[in-house]
Structure formats: C-alpha cells, structure tokens
Design a protein around this nucleic acid. Structure first.
Length: 161
DNA sequence: CCTAATCTAATCACCCTCGGGGTGATTAGCTCATTAGG
C-alpha cells in the first residue's frame, strides 16, 4: 500500500443525512459545541461535520428559506455564531519543531502523513491539517511581501539617483 | 455522477501587553473554488 493522499470518502447513512439536513435548516453556522453534539449524535468526527456544513453552504448556499416571508421573529437568530469556537490549540515548542520539520520535507502531506504526525505529537489530525494550511498561507504572504519590499527598494534607489 | 476532501485567500478571535504582530479557527469560493473516490 502506497501512502495515501486523501482521506477515504465517508459515506453518510440516510439517517445521518436526515439529522444533518435538519440541523442545517435550523442553523447553517453551528458553533463548535453544536458540531460536537452532532458528531456524537450521528457517531462521526467533528471534523467531518465541519466539512459537511462547509460543503453544504457552498452548494446549497443556505439561501433555501424554508420560511416564506414571516420570519421577522428575532433578528439575532441567524448570527453566524460569533463566540462558540473550538478552543485554540497551543503547541509546545517541540511539537512545533516536529511540524516545521515535516513541513520542510513536504508542505502538502497526505492523510497518512498527517495522521502519523498527529499521533506523534498527540494532536488531532484535523489540527495538523489546519496548521499546514495556515503555514502555507503565511509563507506565501511572507514571500510576496519580501518581493514587494525588494522592488520598493529598487524604486527608491532609482528616485535617489 | 454526486459530493466528500482539499486547496487558497481573507478574515475573525484571542493572546500578549499598550500598539500591533503572531497564530489557530472559520469562512467563502459566483455565471457558486478544484480534485477525485465510491
């Protein structure tokens, strides 16, 4: 078996889907505790719930208004959940070192590598995935900023002369 | 095919500590992102 790139597709049962769809119609932006509750209820991981809601919002656009025109109830019902987030993960310096080393070797680890890494540093795989996303993103920004500064310097030099 | 998984870019939230950088978490993606597995 070669190292796998993607997580294998999870297939939800009709029963699970029914519960998810129901929850989505009530609130397309569930907070962390709501997602966790759902995960327990349908016996899956919270990260799968998160992905499912992301995809559903993208596809269906949550514009399906089940209520026609008489939902002038409470204006703060559809707030995209300001407060209820997952607790920030804090990495120890040795955990960070492990992550950084892995990143240098491969900034796009597949599911197998991520899971290995996750077990090694004792953190959920989903957190490892997020860490790599953020690191890639910030490295790109950093690199772009570096280029801009270099060209700014060139421009300044030109003006000075 | 259908849709879960993945990606980038932008933004929010919180920390540390007094002004703004650092970084984990969340979101959108527009003729509604792309890729790919069952």
């Amino acid at each position: 078996m070669v190292t796998k790139c993607r997580r294998s597709r999870t297939s939800f049962t009709e029963e699970q889907l029914k519960i998810l769809v129901q929850a989505f119609s009530q609130n397309p932006y569930p907070g962390y505790t709501a997602k966790q509750r759902l995960a327990v209820e349908i016996n899956t991981e919270e990260s799968r719930i998160q992905i499912w809601f992301q995809n559903r919002r993208a596809r269906h656009g949550f514009l399906e208004r089940p209520k026609k025109n008489l939902d002038h109830t409470s204006p703060k019902e559809k707030i995209p959940d300001g407060r209820d987030r997952r607790c920030r993960t804090s990495y120890s310096s040795s955990q960070l070192q492990t992550l950084k080393n892995a990143f240098t070797e491969n900034p796009y680890p597949g599911i197998d590598s991520r899971e290995q890494l996750a077990e090694k540093i004792g953190v959920p795989e989903s957190r490892v995935q997020i860490w790599f996303q953020n690191r890639r993103s910030r490295l790109r920004i950093q690199r772009k900023r570096g280029l801009e500064e270099a060209s700014d310097q060139r421009q300044n030099q030109g003006q000075d002369l």
